[in-house]
Amino acid sequence: MEQATNAPRVIRRHSVLTRVCHWINALCFFMLLMSGMQIFNAYPGLNWGQTTDFQHAFFWLDDGFPGWATLPGIQDLATGRRWHFFFAWLLVANGAVYFGELFLRRHIRDFIPDGHDWRHIPRAIIDHARLRFPKGDEALHYNVLQKLAYLAAILAFPVLILAGLTMSPGMDARFPWLLDLFGGRQSARSIHFLLASFLVAFLIVHLAMVVLSGPINNIRSMITGRYRIEEEDHAA
């Protein structure tokens, strides 16, 4: 009886819209990250509140980020801003399409943990630590850690964009609530930086998981949409 299902199933895991959005987002993220580090280097410190206390930055990089990590590779704030705002528009357009799909087609529900998920957090952590990845029907859904990680990363983007806009004195004049939301222009700058750092941490874990849980199958599913499900071994 198990015979028929032992051959791997191939499912269509990601819609074409998800796949296109994913890769545009990946491109935008790298460009925004590198040009963002260029912009950060113009004043390589972080403060809280409205204003800068030059003596007491809570984070300070003496030499800023190295040239190989910034865009452009030499100190050039004006060009860095051009790169940043160009890809910011692309990110916003891409994000608008993705969020439209996420909410209009209720795709967001894939990322919201249910009661079963919450109860199984400890087991999910142990499974991850042992690098035991789900097989069979379980692999059709995200587990609770995946749901929480993706949800946090997805929701980080709009907050990141709002914090970025709060650095603009013009936007603050037009939308004063931005300053109250983030607690000041310097707080907004710090939150913008910290959320970007969170997304870098997310990306490192994301790439590690892609590699550990079957890189070819994973990457193919994000390019062609096709994902192979390994069936559970019932023989034992």
């Binding site: 912009i39 113009a42 409205q50 204003t51 800068t52 030059f54 801003r81 004195p169 222009r185 310097q186």
Partner: peptide, 12 residues
Amino acid sequence: TRHDCVEGWSCI
């Protein structure tokens, strides 16, 4: 008012 430099810092 708050003075916002393009470099990222602010003073009032």
